[in-house]
Design a protein around this nucleic acid. Sequence first.
DNA 1: CCTCCACTGGAAACCTAGGCTC
DNA 2: GAGCCTAGGTTTCCAGTGGAGG
Length: 396
Amino acid sequence: MSDDVKEIFRRAKEGKSIFVDRDSLNPNFLPDSLPFREGQSKEIAEILSPILLGSKPSNLLLYGKTGTGKTVVARKVLKTLKDTAERNNLVVAYVNARTESTEYRTLAEFARSLDLPKDEQIPFTGLSTGEVVERISRQIKRNGMHAVLVLDEIDYLVREFGDGVLYEFTRSSERMAPGFLSLVGISNDLKFKEGLDPRVLSSLSEEELVFPPYTVEELRAILNERAKVAFRPSAASPGAINLCAAMAGSEHGDARRAIDLLRIAGEVAEREGRKGIDDSCVRQASSKMEVDRVDEAIRSLPVQNKAILYAVSRFDGGTNTGELYLAYSNLCKKLGIETLTQRRVSGILGDLDLLGLVEASVVSKGRRGRTKKIQLLIGREALTKALSEDPAFDFP
DNA sequence: CCTCCACTGGAAACCTAGGCTC
DNA sequence: GAGCCTAGGTTTCCAGTGGAGG
């Protein structure tokens, strides 16, 4: 053990690491150039450029699947805009609705970048969303701010909480004068506009841009570019890069996945003390990513969800709601935790299905009713290992 | 062709833990 | 302190239903 540790440090010290610049493979890294996205970058720049002359640019919607470069292009262009502007009343904010997880927190995060006066800052709870919008509008008005809000995963926001806030924003532009707010919405879902209030829709999508998936060749070029910066020269074999590109390409041209894959393959190679990254490192990286995803998903589950998952794992070859609920109730008694109602358990089962941890599909058994057919989709060992960290599951 | 089981899943109300204004 | 507001998770209530067995 300590020998391994020594070895790691020794290698790092001698500069024998495969990595030269690990950060350049970070999901949040902003590269100098964004190949295959010059067109979109230019178009966004053009749409936003009126702001440099003090007038309000059109609102803008960016569409595309995950890993097609929407976020990185938006952030890059906005950063350049901010750097070019001489006025300091230009404010550029970036908020991801999914990571903020609620409407309120999304607004609060936006408000934070507006630098509200002390007595108007947004507490983490307690205000109505209307009040938060009000404070944001006031601040923009007071300082004559020219604000651009990049609202990432706007489809999530609308799906979960409706378009109320967007409506408020589009409506309150008079209240913000002489300042203004332009929205750059980013959506993974091409159909998200369908449920939108027509007034919101017409204002929000004054301009629209679609980001197509990257082709395998494009992914390869992107990876080559990044690999040059991230690794020692020729540390990443062309074969490994091709494989990363092919694996990510076969999904839906997801560049983020491709880059993650390459980074983890690099980590695998380094851990094994290899000089370079080859195909096998990439394959290992791919399965490691899957294992990590599952492990992380289980660990971050609330106790009740864990208990239900554990109860599911007690059945070989699947079970159904009634049977599971019985097993779950017994388990709760044994663990000394609260027992939820069957309705709730059914709901949680749906969540676990969405996470890909179990499969829960509704089946009809004729005279003997309908139920959910439930099956564990993950290895029992992986589950036990992930659960063992939780003190609530501390049984013999 | 009809019945009727064992649920499903929507809707609303409730609870806790917080903050606002008056 | 009263009477509002928020987020989240949960409970309560209940109408709805696919299809095997009659």
